[in-house]
Computed example of a mutant assay.
Amino acid sequence: MSGTTKIFQYKNLTSLAQRLRSDVKDLHCVLLYAYNRTGKTRLSMEFKDQGKRKGEGAPDTLYFNAYTEDLFVWHNDLEGDTDRHLTINARSSFFSGLRELALDEAIAGYLARYADFDFDIDYEKWVVTFRKGDNDRIKISRGEEKIFIWCIFMAICERVIDRHPSYGWVKHLYIDDPISSLDDNNAIALACDLAALLRKAATRLGANGDRDPLRTVFSSHHALFFNIMCNELGRTKEGQEKVSTKRYFLHRPDSEGAFTLRATGDTPFFHHVAILAELRKCSEAGTLYTYHFNALRSILEKTASFFGHEDLRVCLAGLEDEALYNRALNLLSHGRYAITEPVEMVDDNKALFRRILDDVLVRFQFAVPELDPEAAP
Rank of each mutant, 00 (worst) to 15 (best):
Phe130His: 09
Phe226Gly: 02
Pro253Ala: 12
Ile228His: 06
Glu69Tyr: 10
Thr68Pro: 03
Thr5Ala: 15
Asp81Ala: 14
Gly206Lys: 08
Asp321His: 14
Leu71Pro: 06
Arg163Leu: 13
Ala207Gly: 03
Leu20Trp: 02
Arg199Phe: 05
Asn227Met: 10
Ile152Gly: 00
Gly168Arg: 10
Gly97Asn: 10
Thr38Val: 12
Arg142Leu: 10
Ala367Phe: 08
Leu101Tyr: 09
Val128Asn: 02
Leu331Ser: 13
Asp118Cys: 06
Ala108Leu: 15
Lys52Pro: 00
Val160Ile: 10
Asp266Ser: 12
Ser166Asn: 11
Ile179Gly: 01
Ser305Leu: 13
Lys237Val: 12
Phe306His: 14
Asp49Gly: 04
Phe225Cys: 03
Trp150Gly: 03
Val73Asp: 10
Val243Gly: 05
Thr245Cys: 11
Tyr67Met: 10
Leu182Val: 04
Ala66Thr: 12
Ala351Trp: 00
Ile175Phe: 04
Thr129Cys: 06
Val128Lys: 05
Gly97Phe: 08
Thr303Leu: 14
Thr340Ser: 14
Ala317Pro: 01
Leu371Glu: 06
Arg262Phe: 08
Ser22Trp: 03
Gln9Glu: 14
Trp126Asp: 05
Asp311Trp: 09
Arg211Trp: 10
Leu312Trp: 11
Met1Thr: 13
Asp60Ser: 10
Leu32Asn: 07
Arg363Ala: 07
Ala375Gly: 13
Trp169Ser: 03
Ala112Lys: 15
Ile299Gly: 03
Arg131His: 13
Leu296Asp: 06
Phe353Ser: 02
Val273Asn: 01
Glu158Gly: 11
Gly265Gln: 09
Gly39Ser: 03
Asp311Ala: 09
Tyr110Ser: 08
Phe130Ile: 11
Thr287Asn: 13
Asp118Trp: 01
Phe269Met: 05
Phe259Ser: 10
Asp254His: 07
Ala90Arg: 14
Leu103Arg: 08
Arg163Gln: 14
Leu329Cys: 08
Lys302Gly: 11
Gly133Thr: 03
Phe364Glu: 02
Lys350Pro: 04
Ala223His: 09
Tyr63Asp: 14
Leu276Arg: 01
Phe8Cys: 00
Arg131Lys: 15
Gln9Asn: 11
Val73Gln: 13
Thr5Asn: 15
Tyr325Trp: 06
Glu320Asn: 05
Phe306Trp: 12
Ser180Ala: 11
Asn326Cys: 13
Asn89Tyr: 10
His251Gln: 14
Asp134Val: 04
Ser181Lys: 04
Arg37Ala: 07
Leu43Tyr: 04
Met229Asn: 03
Gly265Ser: 08
Leu329Asp: 03
Pro59Ser: 08
Gly51Tyr: 02
Ala351Cys: 01
Ala258Gln: 10
Leu43Phe: 09
Phe47Glu: 00
Val127Arg: 15
Arg199Gly: 11
Val362Glu: 14
Phe353Glu: 03
Ala207Phe: 09
Leu276Gly: 02
Val314Tyr: 06
Arg363Pro: 02
Thr68Gly: 02
Leu371Tyr: 09
Ala338Asn: 13
Arg336Glu: 06
Gly308Val: 07
Asp162Pro: 02
Gly318Phe: 06
Glu284Cys: 09
